[in-house]
């Protein structure tokens, strides 16, 4: 296989999905970092995807306005759901948000504007958008040995990773800020954090809405990558899949979710020969994971072992451990 074959459109699409899934993992991680287990990611993702699809198909808006609009719509839904849902904790919140996803799915299944169960085909594609852009710049043939479709697909990949990098930078920056520490405090003990003067409701809402925003962003991008969305794309299985990214990769670190998303985006392609057994293995893996390594593949200890700045990282861990952050 030559180098160019590796860069075919199919491979590039998998790499693109890796970025989208990573954003989804972040959208699950953010509420969790404030102690909220939300399974509503699939619902928020569908709101983002449908908003982007409707705006671009029915109103002809360009891709670069529909993607932020999708994310904003999901964030708005997050605010509306957050008011009743954030009265709940733990498993109650998980069920209520899972239920929210179901309600959204049934709604999209029945609305006229979303074309019901048939889904929405022919959503403007990012690849086509970039192709048209390059053509308008007068680029016709090959550039550096890449033909136009491949170049456009490569640009889509770069675009998605740029968005992902921005999201990761934001989450990392926030973790080391006053807000991030407040989130960690709320996660460790909500009552104690309240006593310390942290507005727990506000912090929880903030994390929840940020999660919704990122899920909507991922949904909008995925709508413009796949061309086609249907309510079935955002069902219970999708919600569980996003949960899997973070649980498998490691739920206490940003990098854990990203690792999980990367592994679970690529692994199915390698397991294609055992397609039928894929989900059987995933299910058993998830249960076994909880028994043998409940914190996921990556945890602070492991990260410290590979860290170059060993001393500093260990100090950071000790500080966190002594602040009572166990979960």
């Amino acid at each position: 296989m030559s180098g160019m074959d590796l860069l075919n459109v199919y491979h590039l699409q998998i790499i693109t999905f890796m970025a989208v899934n990573s954003i989804l993992a972040l959208s699950f991680y953010l509420p969790l970092s404030a102690g909220q287990l939300s399974l509503g990611c699939a619902g928020f993702m569908s709101i983002g995807a449908y908003t982007a699809a409707i705006l671009s198909l029915h109103y002809g808006l360009p891709v670069f306005t529909t993607i932020p609009a999708g994310a904003a719509a999901a964030a708005l839904a997050g605010v509306l759901l957050g008011f009743p849902a954030l009265r709940l904790t733990g498993v109650y919140l998980a069920i209520a948000t899972l239920g929210f996803g179901e309600v959204v799915r049934v709604l999209f299944l029945n609305l006229k504007i979303t074309n019901g169960a048939l889904g929405m085909p022919e959503i403007p594609n990012l690849n086509d958008y970039f192709s048209a852009l390059y053509r308008s710049w007068g680029l016709q043939g090959d550039l550096a040995g890449l033909d136009l479709p491949r170049l456009a697909a490569l640009t889509t990949v770069v675009f998605c990773y740029f968005v992902l990098a921005a999201c990761v930078a934001f989450v990392l920056r926030q973790e080391n800020s006053r807000t991030g520490r407040a989130m960690a405090a709320v996660k460790a003990d909500e009552v104690a954090s309240g006593v310390m003067g942290i507005g727990a409701t506000y912090i929880k809402m903030l994390a929840f809405v940020q999660g919704a925003f990122l899920a909507g962003l991922a949904g909008a991008i995925s709508a413009h990558v796949t061309n086609f969305i249907a309510p079935g794309d955002f069902n219970y299985h999708r919600a569980v899949n996003i949960l899997l990214f973070v649980v498998l990769g490691g739920s206490e670190l940003v990098w854990g979710g990203l690792l999980g998303a990367a592994v679970l985006s690529v692994l199915p392609e390698f397991l294609r020969f055992m397609q039928d057994f894929r989900w059987i293995i995933f299910g058993a893996l998830l249960a076994a994971m909880m028994v043998f390594r409940p914190q996921g593949l990556l945890d602070r200890q492991l990260l410290c072992r590979f860290s170059l700045r060993k001393k500093r990282a260990m100090d950071g861990m000790d500080a966190r451990a002594s602040s009572g952050e166990v979960d």
Partner: peptide, 21 residues
């Protein structure tokens, strides 16, 4: 020391396992 979310997730795993089986 096991998170209270662990049983929730492990039973989701069993559920996926049984359904695909």
């Amino acid at each position: 020391g096991v998170s209270h979310l662990a049983p929730l997730i492990s039973t989701i795993g069993v559920s996926i396992f049984l359904m695909s089986l």
